[in-house]
Amino acid sequence: MATMECKIVTLGEGRVGKTSLALKYVKNEFHKDEISTVNANYLTKLVQIPQGSVQLNIWDTAGQERFRAIASNYYRQAKGALIVYDITDRKSFDKVVSWIKELKSQAEKNIVIVVAGNKCDMEKERQINRPEALEFCRKMQIRHFDTSAKSGNGVEEMFMELASQIFEANKGELGQSGRNSRRGKITVEKTKHRENSGKKGGCC
């Protein structure tokens, strides 16, 4: 079975737990006082899903950076995005919508987005009404997950969902680019670009 390689980026305000979620998932580690990310961290994990296997190359960005500001091919090759907010911080939730807008305008059309309401182990300090968050994501047609990087709740499930949605969204290219691939790995991004540049013209 083929391995699909894909890049995903983490986005969200500072200190919502982007790095912690990625680390929990990839290394099963949790540090209470995770240092602030400068630039970006890079983590990889091979995920087995029923349809095949997906190698997730996770670009974990700094909350203070606008994610596209790091490198030109940064978001362009991203197949998935994880937007994180902190359920105990109203402001971080309010920013989710602007991250979605940014992705819709800058990233590839079929980018898979999921939203994580993180720190759900701190239910007592919750500032975001859960039904409100769910309703918002439903309207945006984006999956929402309650996660806790501390306890691990929802983390595995969320990344699995992300991986399998990415697989579904890109399986069309799997066979096609697999034949042409110089590298033997499926470089989804490249074939996708050519398609896009042909179809899209100057529409954006």
């Binding site: 950076e65 606008r66 596209r68 500001a69 790091i70 490198a71 030109s72 091919n73 362009r76 800058q106 490249k190 670009h193 050519r194 896009n196 540049s197 899209k200 013209g201 100057g202 529409c203 954006c204």
Partner: peptide, 26 residues
Amino acid sequence: PVVVAKKKPINNLLSFEKSGYHNELV
């Protein structure tokens, strides 16, 4: 911030393969 370039339409980016360099940033 790393980059602030002149505003470029997005299709420029997509023709990246052709243009041959990857320093272009938007």
